[in-house]
Design a protein around this nucleic acid. Structure first.
Lengths: 188, 188
DNA sequence: GTCGACATGTAACCAGTTACATGATTAA
DNA sequence: TTAATCATGTAACTGGTTACATGTCGAC
């Protein structure tokens, strides 16, 4: 009654699907491993708290999208490792090919504050913009470092593609902030 | 015990603060009005479901950040209107001036799918990119329309500033998508 | 002897979403 | 008469966060 086949509409959360994707890409892993891997990879496009990963994994097993087994270790705590099943592979692929429902994600505290810029002191406003600029510069730097490392690795191509979005995004913030800061100087 | 003054740490949700901001900017309004105004203004940087607005308003009154009164109407249903208090004005300003805690918001279903592009058919991948491009074009168009309208209105300056972010953002998506699409054509 | 990495979870909470419910008035 | 606008809410749910809890082993 709760298996994948019998359900009419399969709705998995994005986190479940991203975990499924990681299992598909990396093979058998523990929750701990996944968290590590996620941080240094998809982490840039999708994050999950470790408590959530531990919550998601048994759910995937229950639904038949993964299997788990206990691995005993001598010099480390035992661990529970998970492997994606064919059914899991299938929903993952199906989800991947589905169009993304684009809704303009209107949810930026930063822009909200700027929007209310009129109610703010000049210093605070400039501070916000300068901080944003700094922050973007920091990320740009970090991303450029990673870019160097992966740009020629064929296996990281799609990581490289998303990273380039991150770089373009950071550059856009910087350009925008600069423009507004310059403009503010000329305003009374 | 629950009033603003006595609380040590005042933590309001962003939605509560954005509602407070709207009350500060527009004066006395009903929940219904706020929802309308929000859609055509901040809506672009912060959205809230109407049920949430109706939930937030009495909470603001309870905490002393707003007052409400019933307005009887003859040809329309009566309404409850809200007005920001001095205490409300104060927390709003204080919040505005506070630095925004910048965390790289890694939460894009779209980028997550692209990240797993290797597991996807070429058609699906191209489809995702083209759809993103189209979507960005549509928004760009809309934003450019609004830009025309408000660019010279001094009173909309900060709306104009955030709008320009939206425009730059959309343009960046388009440029990025074009680049990747061109690149994919050259790849085996 | 204590710090950091390995390892797994529970519990409480919260912001926000969707769906449901109701009802008046007005313009087409 | 039917649809749209005005007007306000409740209820159920969910995805996700933070904090708490526990313990081993190896390196320094």
């Amino acid at each position: 009654m709760e298996t994948a086949q019998e359900q009419q509409t399969i709705t998995l959360s994005t986190t479940e699907l991203s975990v499924l994707g990681l299992l598909s890409a990396f093979g058998e892993r523990s929750g701990y491993d996944l968290k590590k891997h996620a941080e240094a990879g998809v982490g840039y496009v999708w994050t999950a708290a470790k408590s959530q990963i531990y919550a998601v994994l048994p759910r995937l097993v229950e639904d038949g999208y993964a299997t788990s087994r206990r691995v005993e270790q001598s010099s480390r705590p035992d661990k529970q490792v998970y492997r994606i099943t064919d059914a899991g592979e299938e929903v993952f692929r199906a989800w991947l090919e589905e169009p993304v429902e684009e809704r303009p994600d209107a949810r930026s505290t930063f822009l909200l504050k700027i929007f209310f810029g009129r109610h703010m002191s000049r210093e605070a406003l400039v501070g916000h913009l300068e901080r944003k600029r700094e922050w973007a510069l920091t990320y740009l730097d970090e991303y450029r470092g990673i870019e160097e490392e992966i740009r020629d690795e064929e296996s990281s191509y799609f990581g490289y593609v998303t990273l380039r979005w991150g770089i373009a995004h950071a550059e856009t913030w910087i350009r925008w902030a600069d423009e507004i800061l310059r403009e503010l100087e000329k305003r009374p």
